Amino acid sequence: MDILDKLKNREEIYYPIERNRNTDLRFTLYDAFLAKKRFERFAPLFMEAFEEINGPCYYKSDLYKSKLGADVYLKLDSELKVAHSVKARGGFNEVMVKVEDVLKENGMLDKFDELSLNDIRKIMAAYTIEVSSTGNLGLSIGLCAKAFGFKAKVHMSRDAKDWKKKLLREVGAEVIEYDSDYTYAVKMGRLSAEQNHMSYFVDDEMSEKLFLGYAASIFEVAEQVASSGLIPSDDEPLHVFLPCGVGGAPGGIAFALRSFFKDSVRIYFVEPTEYPCMLYSFVHGEAASVNDIGLGGKTIADGLACSAPSKLVFPIVDSLIDGFFSFNDESILRAKKDIEEIDEKVVEASSAAALLAYEKINRPKNSILWITGSNVDK
């Protein structure tokens, strides 16, 4: 059956691709390194803002040796403090850059080390940060923006979980709900920000700041891989499975993995059959919406419920990854149950999809399942 027919029929798919080795990736690992240094520079302020933080663990997570198979690990971004998901990496970087930009505009960036958290909050109080989200990015941006004194407006699609909206409202963020999908929430978020010259819109589809915040994970991952005794090579590569929604987070991580490990890593994107936006666009030949082929309904993998891919990531996706997977809700729920029962780790359904891809290609050695979603089960 033709791949497009399989997509339309919501069939589970494994679609390997021949990676393009000639694409200019635009960024370098030095760009990711600068994001890492920003996290370190802001660490004292985060520890003052969030009492739950002990050290820099709000942006570093464990590489956990799983019981799911030989030489398989879980990258537990689900256990990142404060925002509880991979979105903490990109979202926090975006807000920190905005803080730096505002300080620069006010001639105070060179005095950063002298400023207290209250000093920064007073300066940022005149500004608003807006973002559109299916849940986790909104939580990351909203919590971080409020911590540094910004007004925060979070435009939530119909897929967003109630507990995330509640948590945002508890810290004083304004949550706007839409009975529509992520693409519509993005449209409305942009329109809202355009009406206020003091408002800044975080564009999940095009943001380099988000992308590089995710990419900064490479420095901890490389160290964790080495300390775990894994020695990736061209003959025995590292296999990394990344749940994919709009593509910003997996794209940033994939870019960093590819830049560091070169041909000693195999990278795969995993999507729900209701929202295989990156795979559909790849087959279609250009960034497109799965709504065009009758998809885009409800899915248990709410964090991946994005109709169209990132226009920043899509043009380079074929230089980053080695294949796509899509799985239905029934399979994803089974994987979630397996991870929670075998490894006793609470994970969102969207994260659990990574396990299915690992199983689909016969549990390869040296595998990392990137657990991107929250471990807060509400």
Score class of each variant (00 low, 15 high):
L312F: 01
D292P: 00
E286F: 02
L230K: 06
G294H: 14
I342V: 15
V313A: 09
L312T: 01
I316Q: 08
A222S: 10
P309R: 10
Y280H: 14
G297Q: 15
E274M: 08
L230C: 02
V347M: 06
F282P: 03
V347T: 14
E236A: 13
P276L: 08
I267K: 03
K345R: 14
D292Y: 05
I267D: 09
V246S: 05
L320P: 06
A357E: 06
V346A: 11
Y280P: 07
K311N: 11
P276V: 10
S227Q: 12
E274G: 03
D343N: 14
A353S: 15
G285Y: 12
K298C: 02
A249V: 09
F327W: 08
V246T: 07
K336F: 00
D263S: 13
E330I: 10
V346H: 12
S351E: 10
N328W: 01
P232T: 11
L238Q: 09
G251Y: 11
F269L: 15
Y280K: 01
K337P: 00
G303Y: 10
D235Y: 00
R258V: 09
N291D: 15
I267E: 09
A222D: 14
A288F: 00
E223S: 12
I300V: 15
L304G: 06
D234Q: 10
S351A: 13
